[in-house]
Design a binder for these strands. Structure first.
Length: 114
DNA sequence: TTGGTGACTTACT
DNA sequence: AAGTAAGCCACCA
């Protein structure tokens, strides 16, 4: 298994405490490659331990969640994170949200710090 | 081995 | 401010 970096990512992601979230760049840095956020996403894509690795706690640097690729839907992820105590920011005022798209995580409050 | 793709990020226009 | 471009690294064919 040459996927050393991959396992490193899983380990770091599993270390994310409940009610907190981390960005791909953060995980990449913890994994040893601060410029390899892409591989982090790829690693979670190959996520063999879905259910064990809280990939829903990993978000974009912008606070947005992964596109339709999520474990079941952005709505599910939003509710899941919200259930863990993560604070969310609504998409916009006066504009109905077609779902959870547009919802961002409050990184200022809930970004995990190693 | 080489090439191509990708759940990203930063910088420039 | 928003959109486009390039860079980075790991995995698969």
């Amino acid at each position: 298994m040459s996927g050393v970096f991959n396992e490193r990512v899983y380990k770091e992601v599993m270390k994310i405490p409940r009610g907190k979230v981390a960005t791909y760049g953060q995980i990449a840095a913890l994994a040893g490659k601060p410029r390899n956020a892409r591989a982090v996403g790829y690693a979670l894509h190959a996520n063999p331990r879905q259910g064990v690795v809280p990939c829903h706690r990993v978000v974009f640097r912008d606070g947005s969640l992964a596109p339709g690729f999520a474990f079941g839907g952005p709505e599910e992820q939003r509710e899941l994170l919200e259930n863990e105590g993560v604070r969310f920011i609504p998409p916009a005022e006066g504009k109905p949200n077609a779902g959870a798209e547009g919802w961002r995580v409050d990184l200022d409050q809930c970004q995990w710090e190693a």
